[in-house]
Design a protein around this nucleic acid. Structure first.
Lengths: 138, 138
DNA sequence: CTGTGTGCAAACACTTTGCAGGTGT
DNA sequence: ACACCTGCAAAGTGTTTGCACACAG
């Protein structure tokens, strides 16, 4: 189990309280977090701008990835299935219409799809909307 | 083949030059258009706000649908596979990394995916990024 | 010590809202 | 005639940029 400081070191990023907390929050939560979510949950005082830059850096270095959303809001989740060298390019996300949470369905395989001639796929993202397991129990 | 005015009539929307041109542009183009794309291609003078409201109305009435995009920009495409009563909830889109165009792959079926217990899917969107047939020929 | 992370202010981009007036049916 | 579409102004929200200072390695 890697802690936030360990991961930062692995990716050659300086450890700061902001970075550690952002990364920890993303790792702890089972669903993707938006900039606003993070700002709300952070205990460390941190400028909005710093948060944007932190997320951008993490994304560029490959620690986290953007999560598709049906409205415009950008959410982020850690690249748990990716190693530093080998980046995974297939993501299945489920967004619950009730609680609004978006979770990564790590165990769902993307089936092979035959594309029309001439199209070459690089990355595949699936966004399924519906009702999640927690909201279905209520 | 339905023309823009016909479609507007079907959906009980008043015909105006703005609406006709927006709908025509969406129908003519094989790829999804953003608000900015439309604003650029419109010959009819039209306020930005009107364009936003037109797109919102079309979307609410079911003439067009939002197209997922990996960055935040919202794009729109006509619901060609949907009838007024029967709305299709599965979309496969392909975004080309070179030309930036996003096309609907109408012929690609979304395979059945087994979701974890408790999850119920309502709508499925797939966004595949890669290189499209046109850019591959160059 | 040095490169880079941070905070502040400001700009920028995208989208929505309110209201008065104009237009399609 | 009446509902509703449009334009203008303004505000709201999300994100980026420039610069000076602070801090981790």
């Amino acid at each position: 189990m890697n802690s936030a400081p360990d991961i930062l070191r692995t990716y050659k990023l300086k450890s700061t309280s902001t970075r550690e907390e952002v990364l920890s929050l993303l790792l702890e939560n089972d669903h993707a977090l938006s900039h606003a979510d993070l700002e709300r949950e952070m205990t460390t005082d941190c400028d909005r701008v710093t948060l944007y830059r932190t997320l951008k850096t993490f994304q560029e270095k490959g620690l986290i990835h953007k999560v598709l959303d049906d409205n415009g809001l950008t959410k982020y989740a850690p690249c748990t299935a990716c190693t530093k060298e080998n980046h995974k390019h297939e993501h299945v996300h489920f967004k619950c219409e009730i609680c609004g949470n978006t979770v990564c369905l790590e165990n769902v395989q993307i089936p092979v799809m035959k594309l029309p001639n001439g199209f070459v796929a690089e990355e595949k993202n699936i966004l399924i909307t519906g009702i999640c397991n927690i909201c279905n129990k209520k």
